[in-house]
Design a protein around this nucleic acid. Structure first.
Lengths: 183, 183
DNA sequence: TCACAAACTTACCTACTAGTAAGTAAATAA
DNA sequence: TTATTTACTTACTAGTAGGTAAGTTTGTGA
């Protein structure tokens, strides 16, 4: 089951650097030193490979957030933001930022999974903000769900704009988001 | 010069719905009822077509913002946001949101132009916010350039997430951005 | 030891990609 | 009138895309 994971991980990395429609089976098979039929053996179609990437990302997110659940919300939020920092440092955008523009070209299965991913992230962040506000960590006007939406949006695009401008715009955005939020 | 504009406009629309790497010459030639060689006549390569799309978008933006220059900054900002509203209503993402994830796969010329586009937009918005704050329309902490970055980021992703979630998340984001900003 | 399944490779296919060379019809300029 | 340019079409190409059928090797369980 080693190769299967390697394929999925490389596919994720390619999606987040070149985009879903720009990577090919050759981009997977060459570095992994297997033939493209080997990829089809593990993932019968590109759709299913992409779906597996998204699925794994959601599971990874759920594992991560679960592991933080005992920490204060202010720290949980910082850890959440650190995910994007790591991406930025690796020159990657997030999976959502990469796949959302290509949404119309994705299979119904991938579309549904991407939709699910956005729900999972927004729901988690909404709860984090809501509880964090209740405990006095955060301060903001309006509904937590709206704030979660605003935060996520800013973080997604911080990676996109960092890539285009070739500078760490992420940090400038993070700083402001925290300044607006922390008491 | 009719056909050339039709090609560029359709290309823009395709980039913003399917993505740069997902549209082909057939997607242009079929609806326009010309052969793909006709497209190569006007735009020798896909790179140059893409570059032309970005260039035209920048010019359009500059024309628009120039035409607003006598209006109060609060109104200018709303007009700026309306651009994104129109996109959302047409089911499109903005050019930046579409091209930024594919940045690594673009030609150096397109990369430079996209970078230029981000500068033009951020510079305009920075000035708008700065002057609007000086005149008492807006209220915000920190540097105008940072606020401009935060605003633009939120708007770009509002279109991405609206597409994925198939709802008008743009409006929820706009409302918060304005609530945070307006006195 | 034999059967079988897992994890591949070999060899191939069709469809489509951007791109090109050469030709043509119509308008324009000398 | 003739030459040239503009705006294409026709007909093609080389390369690459995702995908598949059939065979091979390697380990495993009965």
């Amino acid at each position: 089951m080693e190769t299967k994971d390697k394929i999925r991980n490389l596919a994720e990395s390619l999606i987040r650097t070149k985009g879903y429609n720009a990577f090919s089976y050759a981009d997977l098979s060459a570095p992994l030193k297997v033939k493209n039929a080997a990829i089809h053996y593990h993932f019968p179609s590109k759709d299913l490979l992409g779906a597996s990437v998204v699925e794994e990302m959601v599971h990874g997110f759920q594992r991560l957030t679960s592991s933080w659940s005992n920490q204060p919300e202010a720290e949980q939020l910082e850890q959440f933001m650190d995910i994007y920092r790591n991406s930025q440092q690796q020159g990657m955008v997030c999976l959502m930022g990469s796949l959302a523009p290509d949404f119309e070209t994705l299979s119904p299965v991938m579309q549904a999974q991407l939709q699910g991913m956005s729900r999972v992230i927004l729901d988690w962040l909404t709860t984090c903000l809501e509880q964090g506000r209740a405990k006095g960590f955060f301060q903001f006007k309006g509904q937590a769900a709206d704030r979660a939406l605003l935060l996520t949006s800013s973080l997604i695009s911080s990676l996109l704009l960092s890539r285009v401008q070739q500078t760490d715009l992420y940090s400038r955005i993070r700083q402001q988001l925290l300044a607006d939020l922390l008491v």
